[in-house]
């Protein structure tokens, strides 16, 4: 198991290196760090001097090595001229909002898709299954911003029971100003509801369908038929034998999708004026803050890789087949 974890983490590191290389190449190609630093009003000679001093004329891989070293040892991902702060700090200020949004959404997806997917597989002809399946078709085909606007109209404008923008009241989670959380106040939680629902409409139907079809497939297997032949109770056959085998492929997809979701918050954050990384990204695009954009890409990629690695390791714990090949 330990060998499996180590291998999986090494894989993640390699992936991060490749991503950083690509990102760095882009930055190298299009970026203008001198302008980011001192603006347009310097003479070409001064520019050249500054570039020399910053090592911008060094060979590509020397620069890349420095980039990685700074990023890893000092968490230095460059400076944002828009915010006039280190990029990482800007991102760190916006990350909690996005992470909490994704967490809330993931929670909604898990809590709803598991029972609904399993139920739809077990009782495909019941009215609840039919309703769920048609509703999920609707959910998949509806664009996120439309869902969001509809939700805002109903809950915020028409019934006036939920707020429609911002994070509401936040408190300092660790007492050091790094993580402002909305999870601990009623107002913050209220503000989370609509954005999370609208973000979940994208993937919830997908997961209900995935769990349903995986479960149906598992129910047809020989080992399930054998479980019946052994005289086990329906609860045991469904929830012990079929469920775990259903879950295995679902967990993998879940990991990937939650990772992807960090990139998908963009639209939701825009509609709900959610001060997260997606919102920050749009601002950076607007103001052509390339340095910040690059840093954002690195961070989102890192989040994606971390989520995937954690999920894969979790998967290894559940699936005995993986564990064995991992220790060999």
């Amino acid at each position: 198991m330990i060998a499996f974890i180590i291998r999986r983490v090494l894989q993640a590191v390699v992936v991060m290196l490749v991503i950083s290389l690509v990102v760095f190449a882009i930055k190298n190609q299009f970026g203008d760090p001198v302008r980011d630093l001192v603006g347009e009003r310097v003479t070409p000679e001064e520019r050249q001097q500054i570039a020399d001093k910053m090592g911008l004329n060094d060979p590509f891989f020397v620069q890349y090595g420095r980039f990685v070293k700074n990023a890893v040892t000092q968490g230095d991902l460059g400076r944002s001229f828009l915010y006039n702060k280190p990029n990482l700090e800007v991102i760190a200020n916006h990350a909690p909002a996005t992470i909490e949004l994704v967490l809330g959404t993931a929670l909604i997806i898990i809590v709803l898709s598991l029972p609904l997917g399993v139920y739809c597989a077990l009782k495909p002809r019941s009215w609840l299954s039919r309703f769920t399946m048609s509703f999920s078709t609707l959910g998949v085909s509806m664009p996120v911003f439309l869902t969001a606007i509809l939700l805002i109209y109903l809950f915020a404008v028409h019934w006036r029971i939920l707020p429609s923008y911002g994070r509401g009241e936040t408190v300092d989670l660790f007492g050091n100003g790094i993580w402002m959380t909305g999870l601990l106040t009623v107002d913050g939680l209220k503000h989370l509801i609509l954005p999370c629902i609208s973000l979940s409409t994208l993937m919830l139907p997908l997961f209900i369908r995935l769990i349903r079809s995986e479960m149906m497939e598992v129910l047809e297997t020989e080992y399930i038929k054998y479980a019946w032949a052994k005289g086990l109770s329906p609860r045991r056959v469904w929830l012990v034998h079929a469920f775990k085998n259903t879950l295995l492929p679902v967990i993998t997809v879940f990991g990937v999708q939650i990772g992807i979701m960090f990139a998908f918050t963009l639209l939701t954050e825009l509609v709900f004026q959610w001060p997260g990384m997606g919102f920050m990204f749009l601002e950076a695009v607007n103001r052509a803050d390339l340095s910040l954009l690059i840093a954002y890409l690195v961070v989102v990629a890192a989040l994606f890789v971390v989520v995937n690695t954690v999920v894969d390791i979790l998967y290894g714990f559940i699936n005995p087949t993986v564990r064995i090949t991992g220790t060999k």
């Binding site: 297997t221 020989e222 080992y223 038929k225 054998y226 479980a227 032949a229 034998h241 775990k244 085998n245 295995l248 559940i318 699936n319 005995p320 087949t321």
Partner: peptide, 16 residues
Amino acid sequence: SMIFQDPMMTLNPVYT
């Protein structure tokens, strides 16, 4: 009791 044809498919792979 029943014994099935293919022992490779009969036991649940995720339980001991």
